[in-house]
């Protein structure tokens, strides 16, 4: 564990708390992509199968349980109590493409051909693309409320911090490299490029998230 990874995990945790607070406060899920949330649930469900297979640390186990439970809870909130505020027509990105792409890449380049490893690779590639429906919806409507912007920023920042963590690990752990994490992490962080720019130039200056 190092400071970059810990900060990344905490930012990831914060993003989920921000989203749940947003859903509770406004009692609405307008502006939030249910498809992205479904994808995160799928990401955690396929990656954290290893909860039953091995033990890393109490921290690791508790975080995994939290990510699984919270993503399930968010999907439940959007699917059931807040369903009336969900506008399906705005959340129109075809996620089948994302799932199929992640599946093909995971099958082509896993670390090892075992069910758990292929699912792990699938979850890493899927996570790198899972924000696309959310970004797509924000681009389509051209705006987002501030708390939703904070949510997306925290989510993007988390993977950017993980990249610093991998640099750190490369130098401190005998050239440690996980190329799947690196490739997916670069893709994931790059996807946020435009968003980060608008967030920093507008939202942090007290204006709303609006596309020019």
């Amino acid at each position: 564990m190092n400071i970059f990874r810990l900060s990344g995990d905490l930012l990831h945790l914060a993003s989920i708390f921000i989203l749940i607070a947003r859903l509770h406060q406004t009692k609405s899920c307008a502006g939030i992509s249910l498809k992205t949330q479904y994808l995160y649930l799928l990401v955690f469900a396929t990656r954290y199968l290893d909860l039953f297979l091995g033990f890393v640390s109490v921290y690791n186990t508790l975080m995994k349980i939290f990510f699984l439970a919270s993503s399930g809870y968010i999907v439940y909130l959007m699917y059931s109590p807040l369903k009336a505020s969900y506008d399906k027509s705005l959340d129109s990105f075809r996620v089948e493409y994302i799932i199929a792409f992640a599946a093909v890449v995971a099958l082509a380049f896993p670390h090892k051909y075992s069910v758990v490893e292929v699912l792990w690779s699938f979850s890493i590639y899927l996570e790198s693309l899972a924000i696309i429906p959310q970004l797509f919806q924000m681009t389509r409507t051209g705006e987002a409320d501030n708390i939703t912007s904070h949510y997306v920023f925290a989510l993007g920042g988390y993977r950017a911090l993980y990249m610093l963590n991998w640099f750190y690990r490369y130098y401190t752990e005998d050239n440690y490299v996980d190329y799947i994490s690196w490739i997916a992490g670069i893709v994931q962080t790059a996807l946020y490029g435009d968003f980060f720019y608008i967030y920093i130039t507008r939202v942090l200056k007290g204006k709303s998230f609006k596309l020019p």
Binding site: R5, D9, H12, V56, N60, M63, K112, E117, W120, S181
Partner: peptide
């Protein structure tokens, strides 16, 4: 076995 990949990150 020895070839098992360890994923210690979240």
């Amino acid at each position: 076995d020895e070839d098992d990949v360890v994923h210690d990150e979240l």
